[in-house]
Amino acid sequence: MANGSRQAAWEFFGAELKRRREDAGLTQMELGSRVFVSGGYIGQFEQAIRKPQLDVAQRIDEILQTEGFFERTWRKLIDDKRYAEYFAEVVELERTATKISTFAPTLVPGLLQTSAYTRAVMLAGNPFASDDSIEEKVEARRERARVLDGTTPPEYWAILHEHVLRIPVGGSAAMAEQLDHVVSLARRRKVLVQTLPYAVGAYPLMGRMVQLMEFAEAPPTAYTEAVYSGSLLDDPALVKRVQGAYDLLRAAALPPEASLALIESAAEDHRRCASTT
């Protein structure tokens, strides 16, 4: 679904929510209190500024007695079978974000991955998957990455732990290519990259992947992952705490130029390994 038609569909979702809420004789605040969000959030859903999470859409159906209409519409708009259910909404939010800030403790972030790197990650987690299935996942990730090449790309800031640079995902040659790609994006000012060297020792969000997203007309959100699960956080107080931890990571990380030098050095190390095998 193209971005324009997707937005039109969300506007329809919002218009229907407003119509059915008013038919039920509820104010935005009254509906919000019953589905455990603020009245302001209901207003943002109705204006298609913000998209509700699945559990909120389900609670709206329950309160407005709409027989699953909003859940079905949500699934049609957000569910993409190429992504895990817990991640599909994040992909949707990336398309409208004005700023994305990511901390990667173990893997190169998806938006920065090469096809070879993605393929190796997918095969490691799905050793019995067919080639077609793996390639579908690789293409989905390539499609996600195109957000950085759009007419109004988000400001993208990534902090990579040195651990990310050293693991030869896909082999030494593929890893060298991956790190060259990250450097190229940074040199072309598509992204801003910092590295967190081993020497830092303990650090905030120890071992936790986190992604913060900001929007032109909606509150910021934070996303973090665990094993085969993810959490999209939008409680303002909690998002503020995550932002504070991310700021501490920025302070501990190497400056951008020193970070690129470390990435380039790691790429050369992988290239040397590739040439001797």
Rank of each mutant, 00 (worst) to 15 (best):
P153K: 05
T73N: 06
E162Q: 09
E162M: 05
Q58W: 06
L107V: 08
T73A: 12
Q58T: 03
D55Y: 10
A176M: 15
E94Q: 15
E92H: 02
I78D: 07
R141D: 14
D132H: 07
F69I: 06
E92P: 00
T114L: 05
H181K: 03
A120Y: 04
F70K: 07
T106H: 08
A140R: 13
R119G: 00
K99T: 12
G43K: 15
A84G: 09
A97P: 13
R72A: 11
A173Y: 13
F70C: 10
E136K: 04
V37P: 04
K137Q: 11
S133H: 07
V164T: 07
A124Y: 05
V90M: 15
T102H: 10
F45N: 13
L148H: 04
P154F: 10
G39F: 12
I63P: 00
L165E: 02
E135M: 01
I42P: 00
E85P: 00
R95T: 10
I134V: 10
V182A: 04
E71H: 00
A129K: 06
R142A: 10
W157C: 09
S172C: 08
F87D: 12
L165A: 05
H163W: 04
I167H: 07
K81S: 13
Y86H: 09
G170H: 10
A57P: 08
T152H: 06
R146Y: 08
E92M: 01
E71R: 01
L54T: 03
A129N: 07
P168R: 14
S101C: 15
Q44E: 14
T118A: 08
G110D: 06
T106C: 10
A140S: 06
H163P: 01
I42A: 11
D131G: 04
L165G: 07
Q47V: 12
I159R: 09
P168C: 01
I134H: 10
R166S: 01
P105N: 11
K137E: 14
H161K: 06
H163A: 09
L112Y: 02
D149R: 05
S115E: 13
E85W: 00
L54G: 01
V182P: 02
H181Y: 04
K81E: 14
F45I: 12
K81M: 11
V90P: 02
D132R: 13
E155F: 09
E92S: 01
A176K: 13
A48D: 02
L148N: 07
G170I: 00
E136W: 03
D131M: 08
L112P: 03
D149C: 06
V164F: 08
E92F: 03
W157A: 05
E46Q: 14
E136P: 00
D180Y: 08
R141L: 14
S172M: 15
Q47I: 11
R59G: 06
V56H: 08
D132Y: 04
R59Q: 13
P52R: 02
R144Q: 15
L111T: 05
T98P: 00
G68Q: 02
T106V: 10
H181G: 02
E71M: 02
T118Y: 03
T106Y: 10
A174W: 12
A97S: 10
P52S: 15
A174S: 12
Y41W: 13
L54R: 12
K81R: 14
